[in-house]
Structure formats: structure tokens, C-alpha cells
Design a protein around this nucleic acid. Structure first.
Length: 421
RNA sequence: GGCAGGUUGCCCGAGUGGCCAAAGGGAGCUGACUGUAAAUCAGCCGCGCAAGCUACGGGAGUUCGAAUCUCUCACCUGCCA
């Protein structure tokens, strides 16, 4: 039972439009799924998320398990009802937290240890809070240090209590620095866990008859290795997942290739979710190569730190040059913030550490990415995908190409080329 | 009037002979952020490209060497009359 319908195909590529149906409504794909880790998109009301066109929200099983606890969310009517979000919801399994609390893989470290192969990597200044074994993960709560354990079964139980429309299998997310040998073992482990997730999911689904159907997506790992990625899909396919999540360690330059490998191995009718991606260039790449949905913290996190998306690149609004800039955040933007406020005002709010600065900036950034993906979808439908991408990206990166002395918002540097989930 | 204490870089504030262009905050400036341990984190922050210069209330001293010791002037704060 795969409630996914393919619409327009992108010629010569894996990309397509479609509709993903859930008990709480349809998602027109490709779609950006806003992240609301702790059952809230930080700083923004659900009504605002609806107004800006967000189609679905993704929360996190690990965080909601620790606080407030899945039983409370369940008693609150399930994730959507609890947080007053009427539309479709997703939950991530907590698999990513095994990485972020375990290895604490961060950019600083990635640069310091580049080329180094290590299976026991911890970011500077971080304490390892999680350890993995074949049966599951033991971790300490980042909130109070208490000890907990997740297994595939427990993650399924939690996600069933949370009640999201789309849930993910419990997986192990590795880093680019793990050895090939470790990546192999890890993919095997994720596969074994997938089997257990499916079993538990079916058991729970049967025992909870009458509840809205929850779709379970398997998660594909395998880092940068083509054979591991393709094999991971082939191994997961017969298990009967409703869709797939593509996760794991990869370099930005390999994003499209990796998504393509995975999607080429899947039946066309399978919905594909790319975990943790939303930079504009990555959005085009991911969609072209077959991703239907993707979620990312970036628009909201970056907004809270004063970075603003615009057609001319991402820029830092807190910079002094915007103190007296009375134009909207982005030219031509139709969001609530741009309709009513100026850069100078938001700059002031950020400097004064006023809370609405986060709200207004997040509304803008979320709208920017949602609209970008909507526009991409339309461009696939009317056959102008390639032109739209060329046009958008050439403008988006124009400021950067002209160099730092160039006026107008733009990025002055790129990241280290590593993506972390 | 007497006694005691104080005056440090944009602000607060440590430092009581050399390791002090001076701790630590804040402010300011810049950068980063991709399944959220993030309203976070990192770097810079007297002038100068540099040799070096100017700096710890003002001035004068002691000393090889002073933000640190002495004298003096100015202002501030307590307590006693």
C-alpha cells in the first residue's frame, strides 16, 4: 500500500512530480518538509507555517521521547493534534541522534581530520553520549544525563505513539570518516534493524486497528560507496516499506550521484525522502535525481542566527551594512515578513535580541525554500526545469562569483563540502 | 574639618615592580550553520604592513625596568565630627 502517485516525469533523469497521500492530506511533490523537532517549528506558529505554504512537518522521536514523552503526545491526540498542525506529519526515528550524540561529527573536526579514517570520532569539546551495538543504541539524555536505550522495536513503539503519518526505520548514520569496513558493517546493521522495524511496525499496526495508517520508510545508508548504496536498496526492497529515506554521510559534490544510485534501484512508485537537505543548489540536484520530499533544519536554524535567503544568495542580516536598509528581506518575496517589515527593522530586532526577530526571519526563510520547491515542481510540469535551474542558480551565486568586494547580499564563502545527517 | 578608599582600553572590571598592549565580561566587527545537544558556535577587537608607537586620571619623581612605589594636583566614594 504505497499511497504515492507519479505525475510529470523529468526527461532523462529520475526526477518527477507526484502526490503523496496521507491520512492528514496530500503532499504535492517535490515538497520541502519543514522540521519541527520538538513538535514545533522553532519560533513559528503552525498557522504561520500553513500560511507560508508548508505542506508537512517533521518531528523527532528521540527528542519527543525524552520530552515530554510519547505517552503525553499520544494522549494529546498524536503529534499533529498535540501541536495543532492539521496537515501531514513525519517523525524521524532517532537514528541520526546516534550519530550526533555519539560521534558529534562537526565541521571543525572534519577539517582537522580530513583524510583520516576513524571509526571512533568525537568532535572537540563534546562528550560521547551514545554507543551503538548490533542490538541497538545506549545513550545518555542530553537533557539530564539519564541513561536510555533505543532498539528498532522501541523506536517503532515510540513513533507509533507519536502517531505521525510517515515514520522512519531506525538506522545507523555514519560519517565520511568511518572506514569502508565500518560502512559495510553499518549497512548490514541498518538492514538487520530494518527487518526488525518492519516486523514491529506490522505488529503495532495490527494491534492498533482503527488508527490512521502510518507509512514506514526504510532508510538507505552506504555513505559514498555506489555498491553499498545500491545493495542497501536491493536488500530493503523486499521488506515491503512504503517508501525510502536516503540518509547518511556524503559530500555535497556527490549528492546528486548518490541520490541517483538509490533511486535507480527503486520502483518508480516508491516515494523517496532525502533526509536533511535544503540548500537551493542541493534542492535542484536532489529533485533532478529523484527525491520527492526532503526536510532540513537549515532554513529555520540559520534564520534564528540572522542569515536570510534571497534570490541573490544567503546573507547575514546582522551585519552592519543593513542597519539603514529599509527594503524587504528579499526582492519579490511574497512572505508575511517581507510584506510588512524591512531589513533595518529586523536588523534592529536581532541586535536587540528581541524574540520576534527569530519568528520573522524563520517565516521568511521557510517561505523561501517552500516557494523554491513549489517553483521547481511547476517547472517540471511545464518542462522548464533546466532553464529555471540555470536562471535561479546563476543569480543566486552571482554575488559570490563577483567576489567579496561586490555589493548586494551574497555568500562570501562556501562550506567545507561535507554534509552531515 | 578628620580618617579611609578609589580613578585601568567604547562600557563594566581583574591586575599592586619585569612573564602587561594589560585577565574576564559586555558592546562592536566578521564568519559559519544541510534527518536541531543551536535565539548557537568560531574568529577579530589601541594605532601601524612592519620595525615600532601611544596607553592604566594630570604632572613630577624613584628604579636597569612602573598600571603597580613616592610626591603633588584634580575629581569620586565611604565612615567620623
Amino acid at each position: 500500500m504505497t499511497p504515492f502517485t507519479v505525475g510529470t516525469r523529468l526527461p532523462g533523469a529520475q526526477g518527477r512530480t507526484g502526490v503523496l497521500s496521507t491520512p492528514h492530506g496530500d503532499i504535492r511533490t517535490p515538497a520541502f518538509i519543514a522540521v519541527g523537532t520538538k513538535a514545533t517549528v522553532k519560533a513559528v506558529l503552525p498557522e504561520s507555517m500553513s500560511d507560508l505554504g508548508a505542506q508537512a512537518v517533521l518531528a523527532n522521536a528521540y527528542h519527543l521521547y525524552l520530552q515530554p514523552g510519547p505517552d503525553i503526545v499520544e494522549n494529546g491526540g498524536g503529534l499533529g493534534s498535540f501541536m495543532n498542525w492539521p496537515g501531514p506529519t513525519f517523525t524521524d526515528s532517532g537514528g541520526f541522534q546516534v550519530l550526533s550524540l555519539g560521534a558529534g561529527f562537526k565541521k571543525v573536526l572534519a577539517m582537522d581530520v580530513k583524510g583520516l579514517q576513524s571509526d571512533d570520532v568525537i568532535a572537540a569539546g563534546k562528550t560521547r553520549l551514545a554507543t551503538v551495538d548490533d542490538d541497538g543504541v545506549t545513550f545518555k539524555s542530553h537533557l539530564d544525563g539519564s541513561k536510555h536505550r533505543f532498539t528498532p522495536e522501541i523506536s517503532m513503539q515510540i513513533q507509533h505513539q507519536l502517531g505521525a503519518d510517515v515514520i522512519f526505520a531506525f538506522d545507523e548514520c555514519t560519517t565520511l570518516m568511518n572506514t569502508r569496513e565500518y560502512q559495510e558493517r553499518s549497512v548490514d546493521r541498518t538492514q538487520a534493524w530494518a527487518v526488525r522495524c518492519i516486523d514491529e511496525h506490522r505488529r503495532l499496526t495490527a494491534s492498533r486497528a482503527g488508527k490512521p495508517y502510518q507509512a514506514l520508510f526504510g532508510v538507505i545508508q552506504g555513505a559514498q560507496y555506489e555498491d553499498l548504496r545500491r545493495q542497501a536498496v536491493r536488500d530493503l526492497l523486499p521488506l515491503g516499506f512504503d517508501g525510502f529515506g536516503i540518509g547518511g554521510a556524503l559530500e555535497k559534490e556527490n549528492l546528486g550521484t548518490i541520490v541517483r544510485w538509490c533511486c535507480e534501484e527503486m520502483p518508480e512508485a516508491m516515494p523517496r525522502h532525502l533526509l536533511g537537505i535544503s540548500e537551493p543548489d542541493d534542492v535542484f540536484t536532489a529533485i533532478e535525481n529523484g527525491a520527492d520530499t526532503f526536510d532540513c533544519v537549515s532554513p529555520s536554524r540559520v534564520a534564528r542566527n540572522g542569515a536570510i535567503y534571497s534570490p541573490d544568495g544567503r546573507y547575514n542580516l546582522v551585519t552592519a551594512r543593513y542597519r539603514r536598509d529599509f527594503s524587504p528581506l528579499a526582492e519579490g518575496c511574497d512572505c508575511y515578513t517581507c510584506a510588512n517589515y524591512t531589513r533595518a527593522y529586523l536588523h534592529h530586532l536581532f541586535k536587540a535580541k528581541e524574540m520576534v526577530s527569530c519568528t520573522l526571519a524563520t517565516i521568511h526563510n521557510e517561505r523561501f525554500i517552500v516557494k523554491l520547491v513549489d517553483d521547481v515542481r511547476r517547472s517540471i510540469e511545464d518542462g522548464s526545469f533546466a532553464e529555471f535551474r540555470a536562471e535561479f542558480l546563476s543569480r543566486y551565486y552571482a554575488a559570490k562569483r563577483l567576489g567579496p568586494q561586490n555589493e548586494g547580499p551574497g555568500r562570501s564563502s562556501t562550506n567545507d563540502g561535507h554534509l552531515r545527517y
